[in-house]
Design a protein around this nucleic acid. Structure first.
Length: 431
RNA sequence: GGAGAGAUGGCCGAGUAGGUCGAAGGCGCUCGCCUGCUAAGCGAGUAUACUGGGAAACCGGUAUCAAGGGUUCGAAUCCCUUUCUCUCCGCCA
């Protein structure tokens, strides 16, 4: 009862059960609030009963304290002993119901925004815009794994030797390219877009994972430490959003914008057959993340700005992309609205996700207790949280290798990135 | 890893032979008064969550002195466990 990780506003659900359920159904079948009413009623009934008994006990105990000769209040003391036992039993029962209710609420996803396109799957996502010219090649463009190997900058075999499937060793200009992109992105966001750089821990505790929504439902997707209850972060979203967990911010501070580079660790459970070649789906990859804490009235504006900040990376790198508005059936657990940025990959003649920019409404703020006050006197309200990749670094390497490949096998470095590559203009095959 | 000390409201800081302590006092903050401005001064107010009633203003109840459990009619105060912080030793980038 002390801590409240409730996902949706419990009062909203209580009072608008049908509406909430209908909105959740837009996410797909199998999401239901059945059972909520019963648990909630049970909880409140128990709460009433035990609180009444506690009020009685408090009153009588107070009376006892005023009597000097305790032999005169032996009856009351005996009665209260019984009352205390009943309270204990009720509290135990209440605890059980409360935990069940909390777990239930923690596993219900956020309500999708009414503005999100309605649909059942990826196929119903809405393309919003395209940018850049898709390159035409006078030769057959190669997939990035072939380019990486022939340039001797990506070593997939040794990555497997060192660790296992879905781990890759970067080498020479490949390692430098990854590092250059990280610095390029961080510099852009901090100096041009006014984000504050953070370098957070790469493991977090259970509370942090619960606040952003990875737990309790998606533990199988995470790497967990042996011996301590810590998890490797699947995205910088987790530590960075949790920076202000349990805090009350001032309205004048908002919006707060942070950017952070971190590696990301994902089990990728259930994606065994997918993207088995190359850098697309790794257990460890680098990402520069953008995170915002916004006033509720500004969160959608802030999402657009954040999205534009992420797109700017691709524009500066001259990589063609498109923006997709995710439909209600494709939006992630914690989000209410999401735009994906997909970069063009000539090796696969398709657009692939390179960034996902979401608004979470007060979903994460509620789970993590992140609030703000309009002014000194007003009541604290939940902030809105947002985040997006700005960008996934490994996939950016993929996009550069595939889009900038030349007939002679070399890869031209985008102009904006050259200062970060020591002036290098292209990566050429070793002799 | 070993030894010890500690954790109280936005902050500082009282409170340990259990009851009148949601918790003194100070600072900060808010509102009012006062002063020609500033400062000082005076007065009042100043936690959160859940829950019951009410259209609401608001009124009532419960809980919260790191967290969880125990003893007791009653715990900030006693006991146990955990977490975190600090000091010393060891180890280490």
């Amino acid at each position: 009862m002390a801590k409240d990780f409730t996902m949706l506003d419990i009062r909203y659900i209580r009072e608008n059960l049908e509406e909430a359920e209908n909105r959740l159904k837009l996410r797909g079948p199998g999401i239901s609030l059945a059972g909520f009413r019963e648990l909630d009623d049970k909880k409140r009934a128990l709460l009433q009963e035990t609180e009444n008994l506690k009020a009685l006990r408090n009153r009588v105990s107070d009376e006892i304290s005023r009597v000097k000769d305790k032999s005169q209040v032996q009856v009351q003391i005996a009665e209260m002993r019984e009352v205390s036992q009943r309270i204990k039993n009720l509290d135990d029962e209440l605890k059980g119901v409360d935990e069940a209710l909390e777990l239930f609420l923690l596993t219900v996803p956020n309500l999708p925004s009414n503005e999100a396109p309605k649909g059942a799957s990826e196929a119903d996502n809405l393309e919003v815009r395209r940018w850049g010219k898709i390159p035409e090649f006078s030769f057959q463009p190669k997939p990035h794994w072939e380019i990486g190997e022939s340039l001797d900058i990506l070593d997939f075999e040794r990555g497997v030797k060192l660790t296992g499937a879905r781990f890759t060793l970067y080498k020479a200009a490949g390692a430098r390219l990854e590092r250059a992109l990280i610095n390029f992105m961080l510099d852009l966001h901090t100096t041009e877009h006014n984000y504050i750089e953070m370098l957070p821990p790469f493991m977090v505790n259970r509370e942090s994972m619960t606040a952003t929504g990875q737990l309790p439902k998606f533990e199988d997707d995470l790497f967990r430490m042996e011996g301590v209850d810590y998890f490797l972060i699947p995205t910088a979203e987790v530590p960075v959003t949790n920076i202000h967990r349990g805090e009350i911010l001032k309205s004048s501070q908002l919006p707060i914008a942070y950017t952070a580079y971190t590696p990301c660790f994902r089990r990728e459970a259930g994606s065994y057959g997918k993207d088995t070649r190359g850098l697309i789906r790794q257990h460890q990859f680098n990402k520069v993340e953008l995170v915002k804490f916004a006033h509720p009235s500004q969160s959608m504006n802030e999402l657009e700005k954040l999205l534009d900040n992420a797109e700017q990376v691709l524009r500066l790198l001259e990589l063609p992309y498109r923006v997709v508005d995710l439909c209600t059936g494709d939006i992630g657990f914690s989000a209410c609205r999401t735009f994906d940025i997909e970069v063009w990959l000539p090796g696969q003649t398709t657009y692939r996700e390179i960034s996902s920019c979401s608004c979470f409404g007060d979903f994460q703020a509620r789970r993590g207790g992140i609030k703000f006050k309009e002014d000194e006197k007003s009541k604290a309200e939940f902030v809105h949280t947002l985040n997006g990749s700005g960008l996934a670094v490994g996939r950016t390497v993929v996009a550069i290798l595939e889009n900038c490949q030349q007939e002679d096998g070399s890869v031209t470095i985008p102009k904006a990135l050259r200062p970060y590559m020591g002036g290098l203009e292209k990566i050429a095959a070793p002799k």
